Amino acid sequence: MTLYAIPFPTIDPVLLSLGPLQIRWYALAYIAGILLAWHYLKRVARQAQLWPHVKSPASEEQIDDFVLWATLGIVIGGRLGYVLFYNLDAYLANPAEIVAIWNGGMSFHGGFAGVMLALIIFANQKKIPLLSGLDLIALGAPFGLFFGRIANFINAELFGRVTDVPWGVIFPNGGPLPRHPSQLYEAALEGLLLFVILRILSHSAGKLHKPGFIAGTFALGYGIFRSFVELFRMPDEQVGFLTAGTTMGMWLSAPMVIAGACLMIHALRSSRQSATSDK
């Protein structure tokens, strides 16, 4: 064992117990991510100069209304994604467990798909431009990713592979050897760094004037960062490694990379065509 191993800090996943009611850090992470994203998106929506034609794609009232839709998309999509991609046989054997989300088991990619479906329906009903709506939602997504990964670390779950780096952590359920704190890698890349990139593109580079570019950057960036961290993260035990040492996380992120790149190219081409036609 390396002399530099860091013992896992003593953190109870349950913040507060009130009789049978337990308030968990994981649930608070979801709430914090949603509330901060909500607040941030309303601020961005008020900055008319950021948007094409000096008009936000959605009003603050519409953003308020969409929060419930997004929450349902995250929870339902995240749960169904986990069931389908990570543990289908177990849930087919015991279907009642599918709704027992308090026992854990959520998938980002499923939640992402759920929010996309919710936005498509909501945007169609409210006559919101879909691509600009996607851009707006993408700006708030890193908040949830950051707090969600911090909660994964607190729960000592989704830890990394065995390592001898000085910051390796000995997780309670990870055996005696230090492992990569891959949850913190994801929090830093998918949460903090991706937020900074999107912030620069939206507020300094004027990319919200190219509808779809910010959303494409988010999908591309997340897919790349997630695939990179998968090199250090242990795959779910029931899934294991797939072809050529790849993981389910890599396979699910690959379509995001492709779709994100295509969306960015489409946004740039559409912007050029619009500029040409205006001359």
Rank of each mutant, 00 (worst) to 15 (best):
M1H: 14
T10F: 12
D12I: 07
P13E: 02
P20A: 02
L21E: 13
L21A: 15
I23W: 09
R24L: 05
A27L: 01
L35M: 14
A37T: 00
W38K: 02
A45H: 04
L50G: 05
V54L: 14
V54S: 13
A58I: 07
A58N: 00
E60R: 10
Q62D: 05
I63R: 03
D65G: 04
D65W: 13
A70W: 06
V75A: 11
L80S: 13
V83W: 13
L88G: 06
N94W: 11
I101W: 09
W102Y: 15
S107D: 09
S107A: 12
G110H: 00
G111S: 02
I128N: 03
P129V: 08
A141F: 12
G144M: 08
R149S: 03
N155Y: 10
A156Q: 04
F159C: 10
G160W: 04
D164N: 09
G168S: 08
G168Y: 10
P172F: 07
Y185L: 11
G191N: 08
L193Q: 02
L193K: 02
L193N: 09
F195L: 07
L198H: 01
L198M: 06
K207I: 07
P211A: 08
A219H: 04
L220E: 02
Y222V: 06
R226W: 12
M234Q: 12
P235E: 03
L242T: 14
T246M: 04
G249S: 01
W251L: 05
A259I: 15
H266M: 10
R272T: 05
R272N: 10
